[in-house]
Design a protein around this nucleic acid. Structure first.
Lengths: 99, 99
DNA sequence: AGTTATGTTCGAGAATTTACGAACTATGGA
DNA sequence: TCCATAGTTCGTAAATTCTCGAACATAACT
């Protein structure tokens, strides 16, 4: 069972989080994960290679935006909504806003 | 009199804005500009070369985060608070929050 | 006109990020 | 055990970004 690095809620870094969210692909990922609650890696990025998606998942994960848990053969990704809201109140609302 | 490119309020792009804000140097610039209302380029970045600062001012300007106006020999930079708030409500509050 | 102060632009090198194929790992099922 | 599925890691190439010196432009002042 693979173990992933997830930063502490307390060590979330705003520039790092903004950087993770500043990519259009990842922004869309975040929105879809938020809408679905929890999503496998495969559920996103049907058009991109898996290795590219894996790169983006990692960027979001290591910035503390999402949490990845292993469930059998799949990886389920969820937004770290509470952690983000606690540390950067309002940020998620901005990012999830449809514009 | 030099003319700068400033994107329309309506064409502000979230990934681009987040990208501009995702640099620690620029984040600090934005906070100090916000606190002061309007600041010359020289008032920031006393420790960095002018060309580096100019690069960061440009990034913020072209993302639509700040507006630069020429006042005699100096350039005055102000946050585009209204435009940002109209397009991405709450974003500025998150970014200016002291954490 | 000459000088000084303020910033920009240019060019180049370093560092970071992105993209993606190929090889690999882990899980579940036949 | 063999196989298919899900996803990661590795290696490399391309694109972006960052940094900074040097040269340039503009305005104010003498």
């Amino acid at each position: 069972m693979r173990r992933f690095f997830h930063p502490d809620a307390s060590s979330l870094d705003l520039p790092r989080v903004l950087q993770a969210l500043s990519d259009p692909v990842r922004l869309e990922m975040v929105r879809r994960i938020a809408a679905a609650g929890e999503l496998t890696c495969g559920a996103l990025g049907e058009d991109r290679p898996k290795s590219s998606m894996s790169h983006h998942f990692r960027a979001l994960r290591e910035a503390g935006v999402i949490r990845t848990r292993v469930a059998g053969a799949v990886h389920l990704n969820a937004l770290r909504g509470d952690d983000l809201e606690a540390r950067f109140p309002g940020l998620l609302a901005v990012v999830l806003e449809k514009s």
